[in-house]
């Protein structure tokens, strides 16, 4: 087995990377793929909370990188799905603990026993984020429909094209997908948010999915249940659609309202 490394990254913080990483990993596992989700946000450990396994963390990613613990001591099996594993990070260390050769070794081991290795990147463009993206085969750019998030995403896409392992070794470039999160059709209609077309136009990468802004996401985070386990929630269903598209299925985009003149035009189209 040679697992694929997927990084969820954004540049900007608070756009929904961890929520999306948890949902995406859970979605893959629900479709029968053996999946592990790793928290790269060393020092700001959150993934375990979103996944609802914070009380089961004994060893972490950094322990394994440093050789203080074995992989199977640190991996936490999800209670809801046998195919899903959580690899928490350390809350007491910082990003410098992410040594590239150590990360490479751990990812190499994970590739032997998992189909997908989903990496939840920290925000920013510093060492933590760069390390999370370095070994990626595929990147999912999590973006909110507003200008600062889009600009940061653009920056990250540029870094993937120049600073990833695939770029450095002249391999096939990292496949880059767009996941538009916290999309509110209502606010787009009012011109308070960028439309899907505006974002696609600026970033010019394929759109994997649009996740509607939803109360259920916050509820899911607070209860430690990835949103894909909530069959009623539009956001949960939107993540399922995104996972299906990622696996090559054709699915219509849902939960979108017809578009009007967007925020971007309103802001820049002064003519």
């Amino acid at each position: 087995m040679a697992g694929k490394v997927i990084v969820l990254t954004s540049g900007k913080g608070g756009v929904g990377k961890t929520t999306s990483a948890a949902a995406f990993a859970a979605g893959l596992s629900l479709r029968g793929h053996r999946t592990v989700v790793i928290d790269f946000d060393v020092g700001l450990r959150n993934l375990d909370l979103i996944m609802g396994c914070e009380r089961r963390v004994v060893f972490d990613f950094i322990n394994v990188i440093n050789g203080d613990a074995k992989l199977n001591q640190a991996l936490i099996k999800d209670k809801r799905n046998d195919n899903l594993f959580i690899f928490p990070t350390s809350q007491t260390r910082d990003k410098d603990a992410l040594k590239r050769d150590g990360v490479e070794r751990v990812l190499g081991e994970l590739k032997d026993s998992f189909d997908y290795i989903v990496c939840d990147s920290p925000a920013g463009i510093e060492h933590g984020a760069l390390t999370a993206m370095y070994f990626a085969d595929t990147a999912i750019i999590v973006t909110n429909p507003e200008v600062s998030s889009v600009r940061d995403s653009d920056r990250i896409i540029g870094l993937l094209a120049s600073k990833s392992r695939r770029a450095e070794f002249n391999l096939e470039p990292v496949a880059v997908h767009l996941l538009l999160a916290r999309y509110s059709p209502e606010r787009v209609r009012k011109g308070e948010m960028l439309s899907i077309e505006d974002v696609k136009e600026i970033l010019s990468i394929p759109l994997l999915g649009v996740i509607p802004e939803s109360e259920s996401v916050l509820r899911a985070s607070n209860t430690g249940t990835p949103i894909v386990f909530d069959e009623e929630s539009p956001a949960g269903r939107a993540y399922h659609d995104a996972v299906a598209r990622f696996l090559g299925e054709q699915r219509e985009m849902r939960f979108l309202q017809p578009e009007r003149r967007g925020f971007f035009r309103a802001l820049f189209g002064r003519a």
């Binding site: 600009r151 653009d154 920056r155 896409i157 540029g158 094209a161 600026i202 010019s204």
Partner: peptide
């Protein structure tokens, strides 16, 4: 031929520069 992403700088020293894609804000 690729989009010039935010944060990227391209310098065509002593030459013309042709970009066949978009140049992002911040580039």
């Amino acid at each position: 031929t690729q989009p010039v992403r935010s944060g990227t700088q391209i310098f065509a020293r002593g030459a013309d520069l042709v970009v066949t894609a978009a140049v992002s804000p911040g580039a």
